[in-house]
Design a protein around this nucleic acid. Structure first.
Lengths: 188, 188
DNA sequence: GGATTAAACGGAGGTTCCTCCGGTAGGTTT
DNA sequence: AAACCTACCGGAGGAACCTCCGTTTAATCC
């Protein structure tokens, strides 16, 4: 997952960055989100200062660590669209997203921070997600199943709100998603 | 603001509790939510251990500190209901709630924790809020303006989700509230 | 290939968090 | 009113956070 933007990182910086991400994924999946940053740095064999230089906040690290898996969720959108009615696909994708968010505890918190600070350079995930949501909404609107005046970004925020507010109560999250879909259907 | 439940606190415990709340309100409104707990304890003239015994988490302290103001928001519900159409009153109350949550930054975080852990003994605020929301929903449903199958608790969770997800972006929060109301109106 | 420079490294240290337990002071009973 | 006992108090201490800056090292230029 090399860096592509700007100027290439210095060799040692790139190496340490990769080591840190590997250690972070390892630690997060073993200890949950409360893995200590100092432990991650030690596992990666670098100093704590190096960790903070690459990932200024805990959220930035979590976001980067899970970006791969997030991409998987996003990739599911076109597949769902191809296999069922647009609004149905949209609802199904929301379920996947929430499942993902609740499984990766801590990701919800990370996303909130990331999404909240709009122009955050670390928020590549946001573009990824909006890119997945937009086609779902457009197809549903084109089919006349939902309205067309709701921005993908607002839907994303709503989804993160559902994930944050419902926590691990999956049933409640389901009801909130139904409510959200009904809001989208209103005056279609 | 004395304690009413269970067994009366011992005199010194009650005194310290009140001192802590006063110091907390003072600190939160001066320094924002990141006031240090140790500072609050010092201002109250008690040890940090005493603070943690009364309020095991930062959220519990924030929740207790703002419970009064929260009650004001809840009290507005009947007034709104008396002065406009039920659904309109509901929407207006949501605005007030969000205003409150965004003004008291940190309260949103607290509420999430409080709401999430349903049977939390510190969550008197939840009952307060549900008690404010239920009449709004019932009146709106009776008037045929919204559906009648949505639980007040789910609406409360949704509201906290909006507050959490939208952060200080008040315009976005407004759009999300509109979306929520439309979900409630769907198939009224 | 050696000198130069800008970038990255690493960890010491100051801060806050939260727990734990010996000491203490209300409340109660006789 | 004296003794008892339970609940409360307080702060020391260990863990984690995050910053700051002297040192090291990769890249570049002669």
């Amino acid at each position: 997952m090399g860096v592509s933007g700007e100027r290439p990182l210095r060799a040692d910086a790139q190496r340490n960055r990769d080591l840190l991400l590997a250690a972070a994924v390892e630690s997060f999946s073993k200890c949950g989100l409360e893995a200590t940053l100092e432990g991650i740095a030690k596992n990666a064999g670098v100093g704590i200062g190096t960790l903070y230089r690459h990932f200024p906040t805990r959220e930035a690290l979590v976001e980067a660590a899970y970006r791969n898996e997030l991409a998987v969720v996003c990739d599911a959108a076109p597949e769902l669209l191809a296999s069922m009615a647009p609004a149905e696909a949209t609802r199904a994708w929301m379920d996947r997203f929430i499942d993902y968010m609740t499984r990766k505890l801590g990701m919800a918190d990370a996303l909130r921070a990331v999404i909240a600070s709009g122009a955050d350079p670390y928020a590549q995930s946001v573009e990824l997600l909006v890119g997945a949501i937009r086609p779902l909404l457009e197809a549903s609107a084109a089919a006349g199943e939902i309205r067309s005046d709701v921005a993908p970004g607002d839907v994303l925020i709503s989804l993160s709100g559902v994930a944050l507010a419902a926590g691990s109560n999956r049933e409640q999250a389901g009801r909130l998603l139904d409510l959200l879909m009904d809001g989208l259907r209103y005056r279609a």
